[in-house]
């Protein structure tokens, strides 16, 4: 790692102020950023640790919305969202491993937007709202391709607000080495329709499978998508699976998520 300072602000305001200096970077749980720093692939002058900002920690429900503070760990979401939004809690309980879940945060995951991360599928698959230090961003406007988001420099995800669906499920097919999603599909059923978001598969990062959404909105069953197919164009090809395989898995995992949710 290159040398840097660490600041541990106690409030969002202090965090934003600390991030205002040159080459400052926010530090969530660090489960992705720290390995990146070890490889010397980033060289911040200052890391602003957000885990001590209490107003950014916690899970609460209000009028059909589940609000999760940006610095809330995966383990906390897994435990505290279990009754209100089991689909999301289930997703959180399978990110990384137990030790990673005790450090990694939802805000960190969404800000990083790894193309194989789990939370982006939940955010996009529910139409969540990303609440930052200075605005609210709809999930549909937030994800801009792998490792790219609508966040501006110095902007901090303070919370994420999820509309709680009637039913939801996340199915993750593991990349066998990293245990990230080779393909992950989040399906959420609302009274006004179904959303399907896919992570791990596309060169463009997390995306909505709109054809499946339409079919499932009419008939929420795995059979409803049996006639559909997913194009392999733009799908990732790597050591662990080619584009055709990922495209195939998108459909299989969508069907399984629907069955598990129903």
């Amino acid at each position: 790692m290159y040398a840097f300072d660490i600041e541990r602000p106690k409030s969002v305001a202090d965090a934003v102020a600390a991030l205002g200096t040159e080459d400052a970077m926010p530090l969530g749980g660090g489960q992705t950023l720290i390995p990146t720093l070890k490889q010397r692939l980033a060289s911040p002058a200052k890391l602003v640790s957000l885990t001590g900002v209490e107003e950014m920690v916690g899970v609460s429900t209000d009028h059909g919305m589940l609000r999760i503070g940006g610095a809330t760990t995966h383990a906390t979401v897994a435990a505290e969202a279990a009754s209100s939004f089991p689909g999301l809690a289930g997703l959180a309980s399978h990110i990384g491993d137990p030790a990673v879940r005790n450090r990694g945060t939802i805000g960190g995951s969404l800000a990083n937007n790894d193309p194989a991360a789990c939370y982006p599928a939940a955010a996009l698959g529910t139409g969540a709202t990303i609440i930052t230090s200075n605005r609210e961003i709809a999930a549909d406007d937030y994800f801009e391709g792998m490792f790219t988001t609508a966040l501006h420099e110095g902007e901090v995800i303070t919370a994420v607000s999820f509309p709680i669906p009637e039913k939801a499920n996340y199915q993750k097919f593991l990349q066998p080495a990293s245990r990230f999603a080779l393909v992950g599909v989040f399906v959420a059923k609302y009274s006004d329709g179904v959303r399907v978001a896919v992570t791990g598969a596309s060169n463009n990062g997390v995306f909505r499978w709109e054809e499946a959404e339409a079919a499932l909105s009419a008939d929420f069953s795995a059979d409803a998508i049996s006639g559909l197919s997913v194009s392999a164009d733009d799908m990732i090809s790597d050591l662990h699976g080619d584009a055709a395989y990922r495209a195939h898995l998108v459909k299989v995992m969508t069907g399984r998520a629907v069955t598990a949710a129903a």
Partner: peptide, 10 residues
């Protein structure tokens, strides 16, 4: 936690 993925300052 993984002590190799957390700073001492934290």
């Amino acid at each position: 936690v993984k002590s190799c993925t957390m700073f001492a300052a934290e």
